[in-house]
Simulated assay, not measured.
Amino acid sequence: MKSAVVTLFFVLLMSGSVFAADTPVAPNGIALFKNYRSWQLIAPSYREDKQHIRVILGNPAAVRAMKNKTRPMPDGAVLAKIAWTVKKHPQFPVATEPAEFAQVEFMVKDSVKYKATGGWGFARFVGPGLKPYGKNADFVQECFGCHTPVKGNDYLFTDYAAVP
């Protein structure tokens, strides 16, 4: 019995489950996807009102759906939008580049769980400390309200930026 407990502990340790408390969680229960930096690029963007350079990444399900223009996206698709403030390159002032990390946002497709928000769960983690955004789970209404103008594109502003 003791060896089974020790084995289970090491399995959990190796999977990262023991340290789940270290993972930031949004007020609606969506945890930061720790592996999002390894996802594929879907598109870059620039948001003038915030002066943020952004890149949109997708997990494998999201990338397949984006490449194939699949709408609605399948359950299990997850998009990550990473945003930075901007600065001019010191040796090439006509170039704008990322400055400080601002936030990472996630859209998680689950048509049953997030039916009230078009099948999408939203989460935002702000600043270098990845502080969960929102005082309570109602923060998602802010996200969803912004995305309603693109309801016909499964609430997505972004399309796959194809390259040859």
Rank of each mutant, 00 (worst) to 15 (best):
R71Y: 09
T85G: 03
T96R: 08
I56V: 15
P74H: 11
P74G: 09
V104S: 05
Q91C: 03
V86M: 02
M73Q: 11
R54I: 06
P93F: 03
K69R: 12
K67V: 14
S111V: 07
N68M: 13
T70V: 15
T85R: 04
V94G: 07
N59A: 05
A83F: 00
T96N: 03
A99S: 11
A83V: 00
R47K: 10
V112Q: 15
Q51M: 09
A62P: 09
A95K: 14
V55L: 15
R47L: 12
V55G: 04
E97S: 02
S111F: 08
E97Q: 13
R71W: 10
P98L: 00
F101Y: 07
G76N: 06
A65Q: 10
W84P: 02
A65I: 13
I53F: 10
I56W: 10
S111T: 15
V104R: 05
D75T: 07
T96D: 00
V86H: 00
N68L: 15
V112Y: 07
S111D: 09
Y46N: 06
A77I: 06
T85Q: 01
A80P: 03
A77F: 06
P74I: 12
N59G: 06
T70E: 15
A77G: 05
R64H: 12
E105K: 14
R47H: 13
D110T: 06
E48S: 12
I53K: 04
V108H: 14
S111A: 15
V63H: 08
H52S: 04
E97N: 00
R54N: 14
F101L: 08
V108T: 10
R71C: 09
M66A: 15
A83Q: 03
